[in-house]
């Protein structure tokens, strides 16, 4: 059988006034039906760009190389018209910022009904009923009145849920959820993740879940990729990675997490420094400048991929040291 999604050597660069910014480099992902993949990483590391590339929605100043194969067909060579069909039927995305994808001048009901009529051929009244049902499923109170609201009349979390309803309306084969629950409190978050989970188990939907909430990733994905500076630095089974944090960046990520019950006395641990400038990336490992384990060759040569077994891979020059500090205090 053909692999559902196969991304090969994806590179994305963005033209800017100061030169090309290399937002994503050498990214590889494969996914089958019903699989779930989490993506975590530093703000600005290329998570949303990866998602937008899949959807064919990159900004105009973007250039891509590599392949994105959906059931064997390369999406990067498709026309906008073909992509439009694929977006409505096979792939859907929950965008990080609801207001960028909702149209402020139309009611939310109209925005949900339109694709239902276009892609699923529903009549106006069927589409209305379905829109109300979808709003109800994502927990919007008084859905039969709320369909007439404009986006600005909804709360942040309600807007996010409208967008989730919109993405789920076409029963996609692949759902890309970019920070889908950032604006939601934990109880509604649980309700939404339940809904997504049931589509994964019942309909075999594949899920790419981008989130900075490591708890959400842990509970909702089988595999996870950790990105830094546009590349994958560590990937594997979620349970595995979370119990054997290896890459120095992954270790830092966990160290920085505020934990319920730690109180107000302690300061949060941070990773010193900031992300590298995407226009002048170092030749070697992009984490070098912030890495407590960095040594001579790190900056100059790109580390190779090490396989730790069970599909757990890490890119790091100082792997043995990184393993030794796993439960240690690399950032204290």
């Amino acid at each position: 059988m053909m692999t559902l999604l196969d991304i090969k050597n994806l590179d994305i660069s963005l033209q800017t006034a100061m030169g090309p910014a290399r937002a994503v480099r050498n990214l590889n992902i494969t996914m089958e039906k019903g699989e779930t993949l989490g993506i975590v990483g530093e703000s600005g590391c290329g998570k949303s760009m990866t998602a937008l590339a899949l959807m064919g929605l990159l900004p105009e100043n973007a250039q891509t190389t590599g392949e994105i194969l959906l059931s064997g067909e390369d999406l990067l060579t498709k026309t906008e018209k073909d992509m439009c069909k694929i977006r409505g039927n096979r792939m859907a995305m929950i965008f990080q910022e609801p207001m960028t994808s909702l149209n402020p001048v139309y009611t939310v009901g109209r925005q949900i009904m339109e694709p239902l009529r276009l892609h699923r051929g529903l009549s106006k009244s069927e589409a209305y009923d379905e829109a109300v049902r979808l709003l109800d499923r994502v927990g919007i109170p008084n859905p039969s009145e709320r369909v007439y609201n404009h986006p600005h009349q909804l709360s942040g979390g309600q807007r996010q849920r409208v967008m989730i309803a919109l993405a789920l309306s076409c029963s996609p084969d692949i759902l890309i959820a970019d920070e889908p629950t950032t604006a939601l409190d934990v109880t509604i978050q649980a309700q939404i993740l339940d809904l997504i989970h049931s589509l994964v188990t019942e309909e075999g939907m594949a899920l790419i879940l981008i989130s900075h909430d490591l708890g959400v990733i842990a509970e909702n994905t089988q595999k996870v990729m950790v990105m830094y500076g546009g590349t994958i630095v560590e990937s594997g089974e979620t349970d595995h990675i979370f119990s054997e944090l290896t890459h120095p960046y992954t270790q830092g990520l966990f160290a920085a997490m505020p934990k319920l019950g730690m109180g107000r006395k302690k300061r949060l641990t941070t990773i010193p420094g900031t992300v590298p400038d995407l226009i002048n990336l170092p030749q070697g490992c992009t984490f070098t400048d912030r890495c407590p384990l960095a040594s001579g060759g790190c900056r100059e040569t790109m580390p190779g991929l090490s396989d730790l077994g069970n599909g757990h891979t890490v890119i790091c020059h100082n792997l043995e040291q990184a393993k030794d500090t796993r439960n240690g205090e690399l950032y204290s």
Binding site: D185, V186, T187, Q189, A190, L193, D194, H197, S198, T201, D213, L214, G215, V216, I217, A218, E219, N220, D239, F242, S243, F254, M257, L260, G261, G263, R264
Partner: peptide
């Protein structure tokens, strides 16, 4: 600290119980 230690309102209690935690190996039981 008082609210988090002894939530009295049922909604507060639900809120505190629904927090997902990484590293506990817990998967959402659905």
């Amino acid at each position: 600290e008082d609210i988090f230690a002894n939530a009295t309102h049922p909604y507060t209690q639900t809120l505190l119980n629904a927090v997902p935690q990484p590293g506990t190996g817990r998967h959402q039981v659905r």
